[in-house]
Structures are given as structure tokens and as C-alpha cells.
Amino acid sequence: MIERKTILTVENLYKQFQVRLGAFGENKGTVHAVDGVDFDILRGETLGLVGESGCGKSTVGYTILQLYRATSGKIWYDGKDLTQLSDKQLRPLRQKIQMIFQDPYSTLNPRMTIGEALAEPILEHQTVPEKEVIPRVVELLGDAGLSSKCMDRYPHEFSGGQRQRICIVRALACNPEFIVCDEPISALDVSVQAQIINLLQDLQEKYNLTYLFIAHDLSVVKHISNRVAVMYLGKMAELGPKDLIFNNPMHPYTKALLQAIPIPNPHIEKSRTRELLTGDIPSALNPPAGCHFHTRCSHATDLCSQETPRWKQLPDGRMIACHLAVE
């Protein structure tokens, strides 16, 4: 593996939402969306972040971009703790960190032409001189596989896949180095998903990008990631190089997720032993004590229900939070 430098470090990150419950909002509750998460992202890599829906993946992404303000914890980027910066101090840094959203249909302003939408980030951060704005927009459209004629069109004239390509190059327009991709293909037709993945990979190569690639589907992450992080109910379960996670998972939750992927070969598919996930994911309003996963884990012991497992490194390089894993 190539030695890479860290680009962004997330340290003990918590994000809670105060919500009102009941028909009349008579009760208050706290959603523990992100419940103490540590990881770093290496320059030039794609870190895949997987977990069931509602486990806090998007919240991690939004908090990194300071679209949500963290309840506590630090996010180190370029020697600065983003959580401590004011909106104004963040503005120049926003050029460097961008996001691609799940739903391309609502990510483009319906009242702005594609040309305006692509020029906006360039003008805002003045990444090129004024007279080169249009050539740059044309270049970006080319990156998205669209002709320069699209500049005067409105988003509603494009298909979902085309819109997501536009969103991707728009995120690139201000020359960022790090992009959070929040399930960029899950709202799209299967037939165009591969296109988007390939586009993301081509652009990563062309512009030296670093991705945090969020997905609930391990197979997508397997294709695109260098390292994979698995999240469960606001906490990290396991993080490591892709091959290690896919070929030798150690966290029972990772194992269960992997075994949920069907294998194309029916013989292997039939003969393999399964660690199925039973029961529903507990509510983030009231996460279980100890290891959050113990209510669904077939190996859970008394310790698991009492004590939160440490986030520790194993000799093979992976990080894991499980009492059963030996250091």
C-alpha cells in the first residue's frame, strides 16, 4: 500500500438532535445520531462508509462540512478544528470540502440554468479569472459528459443520472480536494449507477480527489474504496483496508452485513453459513447500553451489555470496537 498522509481527522465526534415526540410534541427526546466516532481520511483515498439506514452516516458527512454543528468532538482539517470556526472563517475552507447529495432531483436550484449553477462556485471562490469562467464551465460539462449546449437549460430538462453528473461537476467547480459523497447513486436507476461510479473514479484520478463515500450497500463500496468503515447506530464498528474487511471481517456486524450480499454462484451461495441479523435496529433515541450491537449479536456476553467496547487497533492494522476481538 502507498503511504498516504492524513487529510482530515474526526475525533470523538458526537451529534445529537433534540426532538419533540408525541402527537402534540409534549415529550422531548435526544437522538444520538453520531455517538462518539473517531477516524481519519487519507489524502487521495476513498474511504467507504457503510451501515444501515439511520445509523448516522449522513450526519457524519453533514457535520464534517459543518452543515450541522457538532455537539462535541473535533474535526481537524489543514491544522484547524473546523468545529471551532465561525461561518465566516469557514467560508474560504468550504472551497476545499464539498458534498454530493443522495437526491439529485432536489440538489439543483430549479430556477437556475445549468450554466449559472456551474459558474456560481467558480465566481464565489474566484478560482479562475473572470473571462475564463465560461471555458471552465464548458470543461466541467465535458467532464460530466454533457455538451456545452446544456448551459442554457434548466435542471428539470435532465434525467436523474444527468442531474447527478451535473451535481458532481458542480461540487468540483471550486476545485475541492475532499468530497463527501452521500449515497450518490442510491436514488438513481440501476442502469445509470455504474456511470456515476465510473465518473467519480475518473474525476478522482483527474483532479486528485479524496472521497468519503457513503453507502448502505457494501458491493458499491467494495468497488470504489481503498478502506472501508462500518457504522452501527452512531458508532464505528470496524474500519480497515478494503481487502481485510471483505475477506476477513472480525466484527460480528461486519460479518452479518457481508453475508447479506448474495453471491452470484449458487453452489457457494447455498453452502455458506450465515450470520443473519435478527431483530430491528434499535432507536437512536434510546440506544442500548454497552456495545450498541449487543441486542442483535449472537456472540454477545454480559460484558457486551454493560461496557462500551473501546475503539482499538489490531496488529493487522484494522480498527475495531468489539469485546471479542483480541489485540
Binding site: 430556477r111 455538451s147 453528473r165 475518473d202 458499491v220
Partner: peptide, 29 residues
């Protein structure tokens, strides 16, 4: 990146003019 995975991605085929030949520019208003 090599494609040594179970999930094979078909090669990118983005036709620049796909689906956008018959509409002419007009404003929403």
C-alpha cells in the same frame, strides 16, 4: 483501480447528446 471484484462495472458510456437533442432552450418563465 483494478476490477477484481464480484461487482463488474460496465464501461462508461456517456453519449454527450443523449436525451438532449429534441428540446430547445427556453426559460421557465
Amino acid at each position: 483501480m483494478t476490477l477484481n471484484t464480484e461487482m463488474q462495472m460496465p464501461p462508461t458510456q456517456i453519449n454527450p447528446l443523449e436525451e438532449d437533442t429534441n428540446t430547445k432552450p427556453f426559460s421557465i418563465w
